[in-house]
Design a protein around this nucleic acid. Structure first.
Lengths: 203, 203, 203, 203
DNA sequence: AATGAATGAGGATTCATTCAT
DNA sequence: AATGAATGAATCCTCATTCAT
């Protein structure tokens, strides 16, 4: 695999960092914060544990970095909804994009939810990071809700946004539990409809 | 101090067991499966670690027992919905009971969701136990949905039930994140309405 | 060594604790606080590292316990000076007892001095323990000085006591450096004389 | 910004070396040989660990260099005692110079004593270096003692010198322990007197 | 003259579990 | 019914050092 047998491969910080992060998403997405051992990450990425500590201050820092990177690519995967069409159609389109993104890269949200649910004495910065990026997502959704349903006052927008995001979280969990028996696309379509109906009532 | 035959420590085994379970809900509800160490449970309940092993086969067995007991008391806290009133009113009543139960004893669902989200090689029996009791809950909700909206076919009942439960999970998570800024009762009321509206559309 | 091959020997907390402390005096007396690794102590005492943690909270606690125990046996080795004889003779007698005790069990003072000289951010409790125990010794010496030279005011007693103890420390160090070329008994005799002469001047 | 030929970083190697040594005195003076980690020195001096290895062969070499440099500046701080005055006055003057030097730069002796007290399998060359420079100091003191008290035979000079240096060590330790409550100048004055009195008795 | 990156060995400590009593 | 003591494997992380650039 190396050019010359035992010859150490040329040091390449950027690539190593990426390898470590890749290994960590995989492990942490499956086993959560505590279940992610540096030794396991080390094995997965082929670098010794001590090298991981060259790139990241500690385990917490490592997992926070994973969250940050995952969220960025996750957001990038969401294209902006079409400009034309009815509000309901546009909302449904967005919901299905989210559903697709969750199906494609479920590790990010799975890890994030695990971090969210934990309530340990010393708040891991990974958790803080997740809540922060989640805040960004919340803002985005709120902006869309306000755009689609201009008649709503800001309190209602906030309420609906919270409901919309909660539904997404819950449906993700349902998919994790139910596997193939759960039709995530259909459920997200329903969810868009539900949010739309509620908006009409809150108007 | 004690009368003969009424030794203060009669049936002490039962009490110890309870103490251990109490400590475990607390710890596991906060830190998840991996984060729950026998040593910590031991410290919280005042009994030595070896005593925990007298009552439970291993850590897995302990956490499974916690799930089982928690679910029982959780279900018991849900009184059956009133027989009279409109379907929407009855559904809303139920939703608010669930909301109240989640506010009162959040550890059960928090731990359960953590177990759900984990994907470790050897499935812990605690996870299996949670999914099983959750299955029971699913059935109950499905029965209610079918009763409230008799016009629905069974596929729609299943779909709506999944959506209803997912909403509950998601709202719970939202509450965990948002704390006091999240009005769980109001959101559950909205959720009941949303499910009701969807039912009308699926009819 | 065990009664039955691989059969684990009967658990005996008191004895294990003593074995661990014995191994620790040896190691810590030679290598100081940082140089004392739990793994080395474990190897010397035959118990696994994890067993050391059953008996002691952490490394700090272990070394503090060593200090405490060593000091007790060290003090016990000093018999009270004879009641008769001139003050100088009695003082010289005491000095030589101290010299002998230092020759017999140098580990205690060596470790103590090492701890004393360290100035790390978080004060190890082992250091505190040594200073405390040293305080006890200081009081004892002060009492003797006051008894032998009743004419001295308390400030002078304090000054002389500090000087006397400093001399003992310094001579111990000289012995550690010079080895056989240093006649510790003779030097302590000189020291007693010096303290005595100073007392006369301070009177 | 710089004129040609007068680059700001000329002879930068020397400056880096000095920075490293400065950081090392500080760290090693506080934590001893084992407690001094290259990483910590690196952080204190702002240069990467690998740069330390460019200037020094290994940790041992680094600490030995610190000892050497410290001793040189320490010796330089001692001006030769005045030519006139009684032997006691000159001796007292010297003693107070030593006291002052110890108060000003205590790290050197603190580290040296720590190295002295350690008894590790492979003698660090830093320790050897300290004992060597200490030997130089011993010679100097012996020469002064012989000059001040010409009547003493060489064995007595040796004995007194050892006693004199031991006293200095011990008083340094006393100061480290007692802090402000210890009047080092006064104690060194006493010590000079004591040595002087002993000399009279040995004559 | 310097340094970013890497690395194996070892650091302290906690883990789940067992066993003799 | 309970527990003090023990234990090997694993935990996170730091160590001194090297090496290619």
């Amino acid at each position: 695999m190396n050019e010359r047998g035992t010859r150490r491969r040329r040091a390449n910080g950027e690539e190593s960092r990426r390898k470590i992060l890749d290994a960590t998403v995989e492990v942490a997405g499956e086993r959560g914060y505590e279940g992610t051992s540096i030794a396991l990450v080390s094995k997965k990425c082929g670098l010794p544990a001590s090298s991981i500590y060259w790139h990241f201050k500690d385990k917490d820092d490592l997992i926070a970095a994973v969250i940050e990177r995952s969220f960025d690519s996750w957001l990038a995967a969401l294209s902006l909804p079409e400009e034309d069409g009815t509000p309901l159609a546009r909302m449904t389109g967005l919901a299905q994009q989210v559903a697709k993104a969750l199906l494609d890269a479920p590790d990010f949200l799975r890890l994030g939810l695990m971090l969210t649910l934990e309530r340990r004495p010393e708040e891991p910065s990974a958790r803080t990071m997740f809540l922060q990026v989640r805040g960004v997502a919340h803002e985005r959704v709120a902006a869309m809700v306000a755009e689609f349903m201009p008649e709503l006052d800001s309190a209602s927008v906030e309420l609906l946004t919270t409901y919309a995001m909660a539904g997404a979280d819950g449906l993700f969990v349902a998919k994790e539990i139910g596997g193939d028996s759960v039709d995530l696309m259909r459920l997200f379509e329903l969810h868009a409809q539900a949010v739309f109906d509620l908006a009409a009532r809150l108007r």
